[in-house]
Amino acid sequence: MKPAVLDYERARTLDDALEWLAAGDGQVKVFAGGQSLGPMLNLRLARPAKLIDIRHIPQLRAIEADSRMFSLGATWTHAEIEDGTLEDPTRGLLPFVARGIAYRAVRNRGTVGGSLSHADPAADWVSTMAAIGAIIEIRSAIAPARSVVAHDFLRGAFTPQLAAEDILCAVQIPRFSPDMRWGYYKVCRKTGEFAKAIGACVVDPRLDICRVVAGALNGRPLLLSRTAAALQQDGTDKATALVRDEIEDMLATLDVAHRQQLAVAVERSLAQLNDPRRS
């Protein structure tokens, strides 16, 4: 089915997009790759009066960096990250995650910022950005620019910390050291399907970063702080032994099968930390 009647406008500058969005009275929707919004438009579950296409705004394709951070513009596509079209500050984590998102035809179009803004709890970038401690940069025509830490970005399912007039412009990623190790495991029924459970962990002793995430929950991803503390102090085995308890404790309202999938995903991501191919 074709979408309900809508208008389309292509922005060439970020300022234009922000202005049009602020004037849109909540009936305007930002359109980047359209790979999540498109299906909702076709099903007429979303019926915005107008789409503002931000795919052609050069500013949203900027990459900036210094010795500590790497700022990735919002409209880089998953496939570009998968293919190494841009520098990777995460020692292989971002390209690995990108390759597992949906299907190649979707990755060719779908964007990092779009996926985060859509705020599907099962989306890979939601958990990945939480695990690496990324910071999300937001602009609006009516309020000052602001930053939100990635693990707090979701209020709940499909509900990001974005007002109707906000655009997610960039994601700031720490520039990891050569000692950084990571693990990422997701449970999917079928390749490319949304994950049932995600486990992600990132360790960088030089930057003093040690984070373990359980993702694909009903809302925002969960930082497993006890497991992470054990990982930092006592190593992978001790941390792995704690995962199940922390998930049972923190996510008691989820059904048993979901908790089991989450525990397995996190345990397997921790096991990858010892895989020499990744370090």
């Binding site: 406008e9 498109g38 795919r55 979707v106």
Partner: peptide, 12 residues
């Protein structure tokens, strides 16, 4: 690049 033509629209 291969893409889905069902979720791309006249404007874009």
């Amino acid at each position: 690049k291969p893409q889905r033509s069902c979720i791309s629209y006249a404007g874009d």
